[in-house]
């Protein structure tokens, strides 16, 4: 008995070799074209993704929703307690200045550290005259630390509006109600005295032996300095080489004791020809001593 199930396989069936259809053949040739392959593999995915994106973003509300989702997500992240800043600590300044800076910064705490614009805050703090430099950093534990460097006042400047304190660079530090409040600081006056504060300091430094006598320095016509001593004496300095002129005068003073005499002014503006202006009485005495006939028309 033989099974009727399946016919036995023919041992030598001819290998099937079907011809491709015309379209199949053409598609294969098309697929073997390099440009088409590149377009299909790169161009088609890019184009389809671009098309889908364009279709999705075409709607305004969908676009807005997308933006909103992004915003809320980023906000949620930034509002985490790890990033919260709760305290403001100001260091390196006097109590008054610290209060002033605190008021100036006006940060509402607690706030996320992402929302703090440290650069803007720094500029705000440095906008205060008394602050030379401010460093802000967010420290661990949610502390916004402000490290201040105060300006040190070295001069008192009397100008049209009143008295002001200047630092070594001539920058305003604060106003001053009365000269007596800071009698330890030298006084300068005149227009442009602040911008040439460093020159004034050099002059004061060079004044050495006569510094106890100096009442102040006056900027004349924003061009040169006058040193005003007590007994209403003035030293008129040149606009260039003022320190050298002063040093020459001091040498003369040391030799001749010049400034102790009855002078109104020492004019050093012309280097070649220093001029002494005597007080009227001294002038008359000098003339008399020299035997010059006294004239009546001038007191000088």
């Amino acid at each position: 008995m033989q099974s009727l199930g399946r016919a036995p396989q023919r041992p030598h069936a001819i290998r099937r070799d079907p011809a491709p259809s015309r379209w199949q053949y053409r598609m294969q040739r098309l697929w073997l074209t390099p440009l088409f392959r590149v377009l299909f593999r790169v161009g088609l995915p890019v184009a389809s993704v671009g098309l889908i994106a364009a279709l999705v973003l075409h709607d305004d509300s969908r676009r807005a929703a997308l933006v909103q989702t992004y915003d809320s997500l980023s906000e949620q992240f930034q509002d985490r307690p790890e990033f919260r800043v709760s305290y403001l600590s100001i260091e390196g300044a006097s109590r008054d200045l610290a209060d002033a800076v605190r008021a100036k910064l006006a940060v509402k705490l607690p706030e996320s550290s992402f929302d703090l614009d440290l650069d803007a805050l720094r500029q705000k703090a440095e906008a205060l005259d008394a602050v030379a430099k401010a460093e802000l950093r967010v420290r661990a534990g949610g502390v916004l630390q402000v490290l201040l460097t105060e300006r040190a006042p070295v001069l008192v400047w009397r100008n049209d509006t009143g008295l002001e304190l200047l630092d070594a660079t001539g920058h305003r530090v604060a106003g001053l109600a009365a000269r007596g409040d800071r009698s330890d600081l030298p006084l300068v006056a005149g227009e442009g005295a602040d911008t040439h504060a460093s020159e004034a300091l050099e002059l004061l430094d060079a004044a050495g032996p006569i510094s106890p006598r100096i009442r102040g320095l006056v900027r004349m016509g924003d061009r040169r300095w006058d040193i005003v001593l007590d007994r209403e004496q003035r030293i008129l300095l040149p606009s260039d080489g003022a320190v050298a002129a002063l040093e020459r005068l001091l040498a003369l003073d040391a030799a001749e004791n010049l400034l102790a005499r009855d002078l109104v002014a020492v004019d050093l503006r012309n280097e070649q020809r220093p001029v002494l202006r005597l007080a009227p009485f001294a002038l008359a005495e000098a003339r008399r001593a020299l035997g010059i006939i006294e004239t009546t028309e001038s007191d000088l």
Partner: peptide, 18 residues
């Protein structure tokens, strides 16, 4: 024509070039 197509297609496929 179909036989030529078969042969050309198979050769192209092997060469991987049009």
């Amino acid at each position: 024509e179909r036989a030529i197509r078969t042969a050309v297609q198979a050769a192209q496929k092997m060469a991987n070039v049009r």
